[in-house]
Simulated scan of single mutants.
Amino acid sequence: MRNLVFAWQFWALLSAAFAALTAIFAKVGIENVNSDFATFIRTVVILSVLGAILVGTGEWQPLATVSRRTYLFLVLSGLATGGSWLCYFRALKLGDAARVAPIDKLSVVLVAVFGAAFLGERLATVNWIGVGLIAAGAVLVALRV
């Protein structure tokens, strides 16, 4: 079990499970509230919980220890996350969770493409086939027939 906790696969599966719960809980939660306000509430909860975790584990670090480059990319990541959340909640407000979530997961396909294009990451042919299948699967799940 100890090795499992240190495996990236374990944390990736937990991330997927929490992402699925996010879609279900959010779809119910935004029923009678503006989607942007719902995103605000969600963000306040995340900040509070993460702040408590950092303080509780002693992992808080002085802001001056973070490089300018790190700040730049974390701010850009934060802006991208905020944009993603706003769009995701708006999509959930307008559509079915079972159709919105797969389209949102096209981010997996985009990460593969962006990783190869901008980070020099290399995927084998079988990996690209998987990326294509993810894309096709997301589109098929999202179809209304």
Results as ranks from 00 to 15, higher is better:
Pro102Leu: 01
Gly58His: 03
Ala38His: 02
Pro102Val: 01
Ser15Thr: 13
Val49Met: 14
Leu106Trp: 04
Ile103Leu: 09
Thr125Arg: 13
Ser48Trp: 03
Ser15His: 14
Ala12Thr: 14
Gly78Lys: 04
Thr70Pro: 10
Thr81His: 09
Asp104Asn: 11
Phe73Lys: 04
Ala52Tyr: 06
Val145Gln: 11
Leu106Phe: 13
Val111Met: 09
Ala23Thr: 05
Thr57Asn: 03
Ala112Gly: 08
Leu13His: 05
Phe73Leu: 15
Ala116Asp: 01
Gly29Gln: 03
Ser67Glu: 08
Ala138Tyr: 06
Gln9Leu: 14
Asn34Gln: 09
Val75Asp: 08
Leu13Gln: 05
Leu47Pro: 01
Phe40Val: 07
Val28Arg: 15
Ser84Gly: 08
Leu86His: 02
Asn3His: 15
Tyr71Gln: 09
Val33Ser: 02
Ala136Gln: 11
Gly132Arg: 06
Ala16Gly: 11
Ser107Asn: 11
Asp104Arg: 15
Cys87Gly: 12
Asp36Pro: 00
Ala20Gln: 05
Gly78Tyr: 05
Ser84His: 13
Asn3Ile: 15
Pro102Thr: 04
Phe6Arg: 15
Leu50Thr: 14
Arg122Thr: 05
Val44Gly: 02
Cys87Ile: 06
Ala12Met: 12
Asn127Tyr: 05
Phe73Met: 11
Ala52Gln: 05
Asp36Lys: 10
Thr65Asp: 07
Asp36Arg: 08
Leu86Ser: 10
Ala138Gly: 15
Val100Asn: 00
Leu94Cys: 04
Val141Cys: 14
Trp85His: 02
Trp128His: 09
Ala17Met: 13
Ile53Tyr: 04
Leu4Tyr: 10
Leu92Phe: 01
Cys87Ala: 13
Leu119Ser: 07
Ala52Leu: 15
Ser48Asp: 11
Leu86Trp: 12
Ser67Thr: 14
